[in-house]
């Protein structure tokens, strides 16, 4: 079973982004970037499937600037066998990325495509679902458990009201949630070894995909700051404030 994993280079999840003063976007110059946390989880799952003997090869794919090579090298260091960079400067959108992944999944004859449920920069939560639709295949989104037996996939999904277990036939698309696993750190030798693993660069035109955005970003602003309130000294004071000042309890 060949597994494709989509990894996006995003602003480090531990940083707080700043909006540019002129409202043209968020400040990305000299900001620490990292692999989207959900994509680390997707990759970790692929590696575990390979360790269990269910997967034979893991190909990491990123659509982004030349710098996204760093993200792919990290994927190789964690345990991906090969990487593909589809170079694109500027914003990517889920629909365009899904088209790229569809083309690559076909070219690679991938049996399973793993993605994060959401990129923590655009917070779209769309790409995996779009990819499954374009491939005409089943999808299991928000996965917290993945089992493969033969050509059947059994996935536990995190839903609004609890958990749902679904079965689907490969090829299929899975988007992963936080509780699926805890990603490993790459060891130093693995990081060294990753430098010589294959990384192919494929232009988007070669795949026949137009990555021009369909959403025009007109303006970006800071959310209104919430004013901090007051500190209270005791439970009695808190209850009194909630009753008589905020009037949210009786």
């Amino acid at each position: 079973m060949k597994v494709l994993v989509a990894v996006k280079r995003v602003v480090d999840a531990n940083l707080r982004v700043r909006v540019k003063r002129d409202g043209s976007g968020v400040e990305l110059d000299n900001v620490k970037m990292a692999m989207n946390p959900f994509d680390e989880i997707a990759l970790e799952e692929a590696i575990r499937l390979k360790e269990k003997g269910a997967a034979t090869e893991i190909v990491a794919v990123s659509v982004g600037p030349a710098k996204a090579e760093d993200t792919l090298r990290q994927a190789l260091a964690m345990g991906a066998d090969r990487a593909i960079l589809v170079q694109h400067d500027g914003r990517t959108e889920p629909l365009g990325v899904a088209k790229v992944l569809k083309a690559l999944a076909a070219r690679e004859a991938a049996d399973l495509v793993l993605l994060g449920k959401q990129a923590i920069d655009d917070d779209s939560n769309q790409t995996g679902q779009m990819l499954a639709a374009l491939m005409g295949r089943g999808q299991a989104t928000f996965a917290s458990e993945v089992e493969v037996s033969g050509t059947t996939l059994r996935v536990t999904r995190e839903m609004d009201g609890g958990l749902r277990v679904v079965e689907l036939a490969l090829p299929a698309v899975v988007t992963v949630d936080l509780r699926l696993n805890t990603p490993r750190y790459a060891s130093l030798p693995a990081i060294m070894k990753a430098r010589s693993k294959p990384l192919a660069k494929v232009p988007a035109d070669e795949l026949g995909v137009d990555l021009a955005p369909r959403l025009e970003v007109l303006h970006t602003e800071e959310p209104p700051a919430r004013k901090g309130g007051i500190m209270v000294g005791s439970v009695a004071e808190l209850v009194d404030k909630l009753r008589t000042e905020a009037k949210v309890i009786r």
């Binding site: 602003v11 655009d122 917070d123 959403l215």
Partner: peptide
């Protein structure tokens, strides 16, 4: 909202 609610984007769908 984008970036965990740290920015608000106004977008036009074309």
């Amino acid at each position: 909202l984008i970036y965990a609610g740290n920015a608000i984007e106004t977008v036009r769908a074309t």
